[in-house]
């Protein structure tokens, strides 16, 4: 049974009161990404009791859930209908709420092909810093009425408002999923990424540890068109292999003292000296780096997130500060950016 509990009145009131009394609140889900945000100080406003599925109609390809619902619950519900969240978000430590997934905006291994969390977000209900309950977007696939403020919430780390519920586009699970693997050099890995982009609509994941490359394909025949004879199908590499990468449960993640997340432009990989100390997903555009360098100045314009790292924080461009003020004029939300 999925717990169905509407805690929205308390959440809205707490924010409205904080606004009136010039207090601050810190929005918090399961705390599964606490290692990113640092320990919470101040009045934590917990969403984890605001749970339940508001609607799910498999043939509409849409699910609407309360923000405190665990990702695991949503995954299982969709799996029961042979469907999935296209962006397949990570559950670090096996935990994570829907609200936390939206606020951090992370997407799993299939992101380049299935789109990001933001791409699948159809609508939200939220509370801004004035304690107002607002709805943006909706439950339909196409909607251009008003500014797209729902998708702006993806990756906003609780700085703009508290998410009460969200609607996502869901997709059928692929009928076939088969992993291929081959031992290849970094140069060959880059060449392989190019082929994937130019030739195939049927790859759904890539992982490279600087020695061995793994590809997740949804069509065996389509793999042939890539002309990569060294890649062999491996039926023993199943979904759990990809889920472990997604949730950082692999040896590489447990053994690395430092981990920095870097999103590179399509067609680029880290320079060789850095690449050596990294593993790669998303046809090479998502690098997890475990070396000792501060990358902030080395890679300007690049999104760099310290999971357990040392890269310096950049200051936010002024437009983002003005936007934050547009949602939270009195500075009620004590959350801050981690990027």
């Amino acid at each position: 049974m999925i717990r169905d509990h509407d805690d929205s009145e308390r959440l809205v009131e707490t924010i409205a009161r904080a606004n009136e009394q010039s207090n601050q609140v810190l929005i918090r889900g399961h705390g599964s990404k606490r290692f990113l945000t640092g320990d919470f100080v101040g009045n934590a406003l917990q969403t984890q009791d605001h749970t339940g599925i508001l609607s799910y109609e498999p043939e509409e390809l849409v699910v609407t859930v309360r923000s405190g619902t665990s990702l695991e619950t949503v995954r299982n519900l969709l799996a029961s209908q042979n469907q999935m969240l296209p962006f397949d978000p990570p559950s670090f430590g096996g935990a994570g709420t829907v609200g936390g997934a939206i606020a951090s905006g992370f997407s799993g291994p299939s992101r380049p092909w299935n789109g990001s969390l933001r791409d699948s977000l159809l609508g939200i209900e939220m509370v801004n810093g004035l304690g107002q309950r607002l709805k943006f977007g909706g439950q339909v696939m196409k909607n251009v009425a008003g500014f797209d403020l729902s998708r702006l919430m993806a990756g906003s780390f609780g700085t703009l408002g508290l998410i009460l519920s969200a609607s996502f586009k869901v997709i059928p699970k692929p009928r076939v999923e088969i992993s291929f693997a081959a031992d290849i050099s970094p140069e060959d890995a880059s060449a392989c990424y190019r082929k994937i982009l130019q030739l195939s609509n049927h790859v759904r994941g890539s992982y490279y540890d600087q020695k061995r490359m793994y590809l997740l394909a949804t069509d065996v025949e389509a793999m042939k068109s890539l002309d990569l004879p060294e890649f062999k199908p491996h039926s023993e590499i199943d979904r759990s292999f990809w889920n472990d990468i997604r949730d950082h449960k692999t040896e590489w993640f447990s053994n690395s003292e430092k981990v920095v997340r870097i999103v590179l432009p399509r067609g680029q990989q880290l320079p060789p000296a850095l690449r050596e100390h990294s593993v790669e997903e998303w046809h090479g555009t998502l690098a997890w780096y475990s070396g000792n360098q501060d990358l902030t100045e080395l890679l300007p314009q690049t999104k760099i997130t310290n999971f357990r790292g040392i890269s310096k924080r950049r200051s936010l461009p002024s437009i983002m500060i003005r936007l934050q003020n547009a949602f939270d004029p009195n500075g009620v939300f004590a959350n801050h950016f981690v990027i």
């Binding site: 905006g105 992101r111 380049p112 990001s116 933001r118 251009v144 500014f147 797209d148 403020l149 998708r151 702006l152 993806a154 990756g155 906003s156 700085t159 703009l160 999103v263 590179l264 432009p265 399509r266 067609g267 680029q268 998303w282 555009t285 998502l286 314009q301 690049t302 999104k303 760099i304 950049r314 936010l316 461009p317 002024s318 437009i319 983002m320 936007l323 934050q324 950016f337 990027i339």
Partner: peptide
């Protein structure tokens, strides 16, 4: 007078993701 460089060839860019906000904003922003 601001020039906003959003995204580029990367799937994600630092800070708030303004790309979906500009997309569909009908020339108002």
């Amino acid at each position: 007078g601001d020039e906003l460089v959003l995204g580029g060839k990367s799937y994600e860019s630092p800070g708030l993701d303004l790309l979906p906000l500009i997309t569909g904003s009908e020339g108002l922003l």
